[in-house]
Design a protein around this nucleic acid. Structure first.
Length: 270
DNA sequence: CTAAATACCTGATGGC
DNA sequence: TGCCATCAGGTATTTA
């Protein structure tokens, strides 16, 4: 569910509630996420929290001993609750600060994770192979062009590859390709230099606009206040199978690429 | 090396 | 109302 804008929205929302706080308890109600939650997570209690950051779709919540690597998977969300509101089904982890601030991790499908990365450990395997952030200067048209040479992989799967650029998930991949006028299913090796320029601009544009809107809520994403994001109303092709293209009125088509639904306009995207 | 398939899990939805 | 099949925003790991 959450792609980069949703994770960024969550990060910005929880940060002011957590930075500088000392935790009273770290409660794990369900340790079976994608991987078992390690006991080291309790080290979060040993010193005040001094970092709340996002890298790709991971949230990094840490202190001087290390940091929790949190992923929201397909159905995860983090909410800050001030009072002692009751735990819901699928609330798997709770961080409680000494001032009463309560952070709850909710994840019905449990595709997410909470791992620990000690401050002196090797670069974590989940983080070490990630490509650049979409807003970093090292992600640019030249990178898209050079990495796509000789690729038979589809354009859509190419931009969803974390080694190319992080944070582009199934929704924003379709949206960015529409904005750039590029067919999702065509081999990435055929991208021209000009197409790479448009694609780079489109990815940056779509992601930043969505962050401004608080992300996309299709069915269950909520921010740290429990509120939905509003970018769904800005989606041009995702989920609009059969509806008229907003640019040319042709019916939007749906195909499957790498087992994921993909949407495009057969007229605007060549 | 690349690329596709598989695996993890619950819940919502639609057809019969 | 119930049952079954299908689909859902991610991605590491396995297989080909």
């Amino acid at each position: 569910m959450p792609e980069l804008p949703e994770v960024e929205t969550t990060c910005r929302g929880i940060r002011p509630h957590l930075l500088g706080k000392r935790l009273r308890s770290v409660r794990v109600h369900q340790p079976k996420l994608r991987w078992p939650i390690p006991d080291e997570i309790q080290l979060l209690k040993k010193a005040p929290l001094d970092s709340v950051e996002r890298r790709a779709k991971y949230l990094l919540i840490g202190n001087k001993y290390g940091r929790a690597i949190v992923h929201l998977g397909m159905s995860g969300s983090l909410r800050v609750v001030d009072d002692g509101s009751p735990c819901r089904k699928h609330d798997h982890v709770e961080l409680e600060a000494v001032d009463g601030t309560l952070l709850r991790y909710h994840d019905p499908r449990r595709f997410g994770c909470w791992l620990w990365h000690g401050v002196d450990e090797e670069p974590h395997r989940l983080l070490s192979k990630l490509g650049p952030e979409p807003f970093d200067p090292s992600f640019n048209a030249e990178r898209l062009f050079s990495l796509s040479r000789r690729k038979n992989q589809s354009n859509k799967q190419f931009i969803m590859d974390n080694a190319v650029v992080v944070g582009v998930g199934n929704i924003y991949a379709s949206e960015a390709l529409f904005m750039a006028g590029i067919r999702p299913g065509v081999a990435a090796g055929r991208l021209s230099k000009a197409a790479c320029t448009r694609l780079h601009e489109s990815i940056v544009h779509v992601l930043s606009k969505s962050i401004e809107q608080g992300g996309t809520t299709l069915r269950d994403f909520v921010n740290s206040d429990g509120q939905p994001g509003y970018f769904a109303q800005s989606l041009a092709v995702y989920g609009r199978d059969g509806l008229a293209c907003l640019r040319c009125d042709s019916p939007i088509r749906k195909t499957v690429l790498g087992q994921r639904s993909s949407f495009y306009c057969p007229s605007c995207q060549r």
